[in-house]
Simulated assay, not measured.
Amino acid sequence: MPDGQIPQDSLREDLLEDRPIGPAMLRGWRRRCPCCGSGPLLRGYLKVRESCPVCGEALHHQRADDGPAYLTILIVGHLMAPIILWAFVKWRPDPLILASVFSVGTVALSLYLLPRLKGALVAVQWAKRMHGFGGRS
């Protein structure tokens, strides 16, 4: 067999191996490798590593793109809008105070969620064998 080729039996075993999505997403949420759960997934705030330093799983296949940002906007908007309305009706604060407090809350929640949602999205891709994650691990 030529160098660099994977035996068909080995490839079939890898494709049949179960990759449960729940534990993978939890590992991604924790910003850990979706395969082993030990190695760090991110190199910086949002930059995904080329491969896991612990298990060697290739992570460069991921295509999270704008998905984490869209999910962050969706979640933060759906959480903050009703809370702003409730706070305004309950206490009638000065609009400048309301805007200041909720701006800080919105930014803080967005910064918290963004890398975690990116990790979860990369983990979903890994578990579903999308974008090149289907080969040997």
Rank of each mutant, 00 (worst) to 15 (best):
G4T: 12
G4I: 06
Q5S: 13
Q5R: 14
I6K: 04
Q8S: 15
S10H: 15
R12G: 07
E13H: 12
D14P: 01
L16R: 15
E17P: 07
D18L: 13
D18E: 15
P20D: 06
G22Q: 11
A24R: 02
M25D: 07
L26D: 02
R27L: 00
W29M: 08
R31E: 06
R31L: 04
R32M: 04
P34S: 10
G37D: 05
G39P: 01
G39E: 01
G39L: 01
G39K: 04
G39Q: 02
L42E: 04
L42V: 04
R43L: 12
G44K: 05
G44R: 12
K47T: 10
K47S: 09
C52R: 09
V54E: 13
V54I: 14
G56T: 08
L59F: 06
Q62C: 10
D65C: 06
A69S: 11
T72H: 00
L74F: 14
L74D: 03
V76R: 11
G77S: 10
A81W: 03
I84L: 01
I84P: 02
L85A: 08
A87K: 01
V89C: 02
R92Y: 11
P93I: 05
D94V: 04
P95C: 12
L98S: 05
V101P: 01
V104E: 13
V104Q: 07
T106R: 03
T106L: 04
S110M: 14
L111V: 12
L113G: 05
L113N: 09
L114H: 13
L114V: 09
L114T: 08
P115C: 15
P115S: 14
K118N: 14
L121R: 07
L121D: 03
V124N: 01
A127T: 09
A127E: 03
R129N: 02
G132T: 03
F133A: 01
G135K: 03
R136T: 01
